[in-house]
């Protein structure tokens, strides 16, 4: 067990960040400054900047969960009126960039597919409706592998991760002993569906090049 430090916060503490921050705000129920814009529908989210002559992109997913993607065949999609391009490059297409984890460039390359729905190309068209329709016409040449989705069957391969920089405050009791000694025992397994922490707004971005070949991204 580490040493425990305690601090009592029942009076102002001189020379502390808590007290040095803008005065009189901590603990006060103030309205959010972005409130009126948000409740009136005037706050601008990532896909809501109205630029001239916008094109629309719809992402294309691999039709399998595990395997090797050899080619993305875009001929039929490109032939649809209103389609501007189908962006395909198996080696440079961004591969689910890890939020906050990348430092120089996103991980690229989609030749190896590892999950259902993995994005491998984008259809660009004059309207959302055309892009969405054309995305269904994209075809694939691939070798399908066997996805491994057996969580329960591989629990014996689970590892305890190494300690991180901040050791946890941790106490372990004796659940087996307590259960054995209990007057009433209920031993069952309940499962819940997997949960994602994800805000309501779908990820979106607007990209625009200017005359000096400078790219501005709205996100």
């Amino acid at each position: 067990m580490t040493d425990t430090k305690t601090l009592q916060l029942d009076a102002p503490i001189e020379h502390s960040l808590l007290e040095g921050a803008p005065q009189g705000l901590t603990g006060k129920p103030i309205d959010r400054v972005d409130g009126p814009l948000k409740v009136a529908g005037r706050a601008t989210y990532a896909a809501e900047y109205a630029l001239d002559d916008m094109a629309y992109g719809v992402l294309v997913s691999a039709p399998f969960a595990k395997g090797r993607l050899n080619a993305v065949i875009a001929d039929d999609a490109l032939a649809m009126p209103g389609v501007i391009d189908v962006v395909v490059d198996l080696d440079t297409f961004a591969r689910n960039p890890q939020q906050g984890g990348e430092e120089e460039a996103p991980t690229q390359g989609v030749r190896d597919i590892d999950y259902s729905g993995e994005h491998v190309a984008v259809v660009v068209a004059e309207s959302f409706e055309i892009a969405r329709d054309a995305a269904h016409l994209v075809r694939f040449d691939y070798v399908e592998g066997l996805p491994d989705v057996d969580f329960d069957g591989r629990l014996d391969e689970a590892e305890t991760p190494p300690p991180s920089q901040m050791p946890p405050h941790q106490e372990t009791g004796d659940p087996d002993g307590a259960l054995a000694a209990a007057t009433v025992k209920v031993d069952a397994v309940w499962t819940t569906p997997s949960q994602n922490s994800a805000a309501m707004e779908p990820h979106a971005s607007i990209a625009t090049w200017d005359d000096d070949e400078r790219l501005t991204l709205y996100g």
């Binding site: 309205d31 409130g35 409740v39 805000a199 309501m200």
Partner: peptide, 23 residues
């Protein structure tokens, strides 16, 4: 309503903090 002339329900959402991201 508009940010300067909020509908009573819009104003109530602000005063009761009925949102975070606002989407």
């Amino acid at each position: 309503g508009t940010p300067d002339d909020l509908h009573p329900l819009q104003a109530a959402f602000v005063s009761h903090d009925g949102f975070q991201c606002g989407y």
